[in-house]
Design a protein around this nucleic acid. Structure first.
Length: 295
DNA sequence: AGAGTAGCCTGTAAGC
DNA sequence: TGCTTACAGGCTACTC
């Protein structure tokens, strides 16, 4: 699942591989009607032709590609979208949804099993990403900033962590990881966290994301024998990341907690699975237990 | 306005 | 074996 570390990994790869290149041709699969947003596909493809790639950026889970003459190509991988870089004559991948020929004979390809991925071509990228919350890997992301995002929210803290308007870039996997590192139960009402817990959660978020980034992302899909599966996150060269080997909570139901050995549990939250350690992440929270003890 | 959830989409895996 | 069902989940649109 592409979340912040997976999209940032892609941004770094693209920065090294395609900045300075010019797009000579673009094609979008006819059976991917949701891929191009806010304009006809023909306007999108003809708008990209002849443009030079100047800068690569990221905001939350959005990839921002600055083209010449102040045009921006925006991309969101959603669930299963991958961007890969291949020689133009390499055989097509399964689930290929769009291709972008470059002036050095290579090709960027968008491969997306579930067809949730979306792209925009716009002179106003802010219009697409304006409502996103703070960037958790910015220096400005302090415990106070997180406290403000959680304040007055009665929803489970995990639901707020996945709310892109509250904080940008966390999805199901890294939210589970961050809460485990912080020792906070996913169902705790966001506003019920103590100042100390918010500080721990801020550190847990940063730790989970930085670890994901250092390992070039989490690729849960595994491989199909010899060939790397394109069903989950892969990097620009088609290879998976390795962060799945280091996860502490996500996908580890029934397996021992890496901190205390208790079996990791799973519950339903916002129609998704939340994974947590019942011992390290108690439902009541530290403040509540402290108060109970004092009585 | 915030909280909760169906639906988008396709493939895998489990259950009968 | 073959069918059905559950699950994976980022985000929007919708209801309450």
């Amino acid at each position: 699942m592409p979340e912040l570390p997976e999209v940032e990994t892609l941004a770094r790869d693209l920065r090294a591989a395609v900045v300075g290149r010019t797009i000579t041709d673009a094609w979008v699969a006819p059976d991917a009607p949701r891929l191009v947003q806010a304009m006809p596909v023909e306007t999108f493809t003809s708008g990209l032709r002849g443009r030079r790639i100047e800068e690569i950026g990221r905001r939350g889970k959005y990839l921002l590609i600055k083209l010449d003459r102040d045009l921006w190509w925006l991309l969101h991988r959603r669930m299963s979208g991958n961007v890969i870089h291949r020689p133009a004559d390499a055989p097509d991948e399964r689930y290929l949804r769009a291709r972008f020929r470059l002036d050095d004979g290579s090709e960027l390809r968008f491969v997306d099993l579930r067809k949730f991925g979306t792209m925009w071509l716009t002179d106003d990228p802010q219009a697409v990403v304006a409502k996103l919350g703070p960037e958790p890997l910015d220096e400005a992301f302090t415990a106070e900033v997180l406290a403000a995002a959680l304040a007055k929210r009665s929803a489970p803290v995990k639901a707020v962590l996945m709310d892109q308007h509250a904080i940008a870039g966390l999805g199901n996997l890294y939210a589970d990881e961050a809460l485990h590192y912080a020792g906070i139960h996913p169902l705790r009402p966001a506003q019920s966290l103590s100042t100390e817990e918010v500080a721990r959660l801020r550190d847990g978020i940063v730790r989970a994301l930085e670890q994901g980034l250092a390992n070039l992302g989490s690729s849960m899909g595994g491989s199909d024998g010899e060939e790397v599966s394109l069903r989950d996150h892969v990097n620009l060269n088609g290879e998976p990341g390795s962060n799945q080997e280091y996860l502490v909570a996500y996908g580890r139901e029934g397996r021992p907690c890496r901190s205390c050995g208790a079996a990791i549990e799973r519950l339903k939250l916002s129609n998704r699975s939340a994974h947590f350690c019942p011992r390290c992440q108690p439902a009541g929270g530290r403040a509540k237990r402290k108060r109970a003890k004092a009585k």
